[in-house]
Nucleic acid binder design. Structure first.
Lengths: 242, 242
DNA sequence: TAGATTGTTAATCGATTAACAATC
DNA sequence: TAGATTGTTAATCGATTAACAATC
């Protein structure tokens, strides 16, 4: 079956294919709707959304359409309904249990981040190689020895794995996850992982992201020399002389 | 001046404009080269790189070309030279000092992450509103009260700010940063920030990223029912029944 | 009704991929 | 020389933006 065609779910509902850029915008829309809900308004237009998020209204409309959400000409979308539909589509009403491997600084931060649960992600257990960490709890969650991962993942039907180990260990962890039947890996280690075809990897590579940031900054400093204050002028000059 | 044209730096060197996707791949190339260096080989071809990173060789070549790196037909690129050129372009030989605001879990994790320094990012100080945190040190770095940020940023010519506060406070922090002459914000809070035109924002929104991941997982489970083991079949079935 | 907003099709833009000549 | 690999131009693909009719 072509991935481009609309898929049929077991219950007959159609599953729309939404492009990744569009997908990443949906949570932004939802967030804006929450703010707007506080104002008491009951409808929104794509113009409203686009204005706040600095996006083309047409793009917003296309995104909503791609998810199968329809509005009413002249009126826009009903706020509450739209929020529901987005939550539904994003799966925020369900719970996906996940394992996290690597109870270091970053791992601990993710374990302590409660907001993920609102997005349907529940990190249930952490794993680590370091015996000084295993057996402890971090933010209330058990840290188990790594060798238990694969077996437990299978028995608990865990589908999502989060990798926050150093780059050198990441591939080995990914292998264990694949072995345990995990189907999606959220990889925070700065390496590209090789996995079996049915295991998808989503890279959160802060190094790459940082490279993009520095470069954008550098380009900006070149193109638009600051015009506002002495201090900032000096700063820009200092940066250029690097 | 059109941002699309090649820019001229004060020293006459041309500054190439590289697309963001390409930019984010450059660190991956560098990483592969480091691995390869360990094997003792002295040259690489785009095919080698593409094979390891699962990228089209033509794309690799285009990326390198866009940065102004040239190779030799039939030979490829000299490993050491290529690494140097990438580091040069990415600015990893210089140091960019940065301020971080929000000494919570995530903030602390970033403060403790030494690898950023290899990429030219040095987080020099942290800031927080919480008086129980200010005055302390995290991973050796001072945590100062937020009100000192703007003034200090100006005096130290800090150009990069990192935001790891809750969504509700992020905009206020961004305003302070802009006031302090900061020109680039790495924003980990799940909100879109509004900043003056000359301040660029790079969003690292894990919520959005998670949405993309869950959705990809969901789509994969629909399209390719697992064929390998009983356990994983059960897992997939369980997920579908959600 | 008039006008704002959706729905939908077409145009543009940019990035990726393909093709092929140049070259070491 | 022969063949692998770069350099470079063209084709494809997908996402964004523009245009405009339908509609409440």
């Amino acid at each position: 079956m072509n991935i481009k065609t609309q898929l049929q779910r077991p219950d007959g509902t159609r599953l729309k294919i939404v492009s990744e850029p569009a997908l990443k915008r949906l949570p932004l829309y939802h967030r804006f709707l929450m703010e707007r809900q506080a104002t008491g308004r009951e409808t929104v237009s794509c113009t409203d959304i686009g204005l706040d998020l600095d996006l083309d209204p047409t793009q917003v409309r296309k995104d909503l359409e791609s998810v199968g959400i329809v509005g009413r000409p002249r009126i826009g979308y009903t706020l509450a309904t739209l929020m529901d539909q987005l939550e539904q589509f994003l799966g925020w009403n369900n719970v996906n249990e996940a394992f996290l491997v690597g109870a270091g600084n970053l791992g601990a931060a993710l374990l302590g981040y409660r907001k993920f649960e609102e997005c349907g992600l529940k990190i249930v257990t952490a794993f680590d190689l370091d015996p000084s960490k295993t057996g402890t709890r971090i933010h209330g969650k058990h840290v188990l020895p790594l060798e238990k991962l694969s077996d437990l993942a299978q028995r608990m039907h865990i589908l999502i794995g989060i990798i926050t180990v150093p780059a050198t260990e990441a591939q080995a962890v990914a292998d264990l996850m694949a072995e345990g039947g995990i189907r999606a890996i959220w990889n925070f280690a700065p390496v590209r992982l090789h996995t079996p075809e049915h295991v998808i990897v989503h890279n959160e590579d802060l190094h790459c992201s940082l490279a993009a940031l520095s470069q954008k900054l550098f380009a900006t400093l070149q193109v638009k020399p600051q015009k506002t204050g002495l201090a900032s002028k000096a700063a820009a000059a200092a940066a250029l002389s690097n």
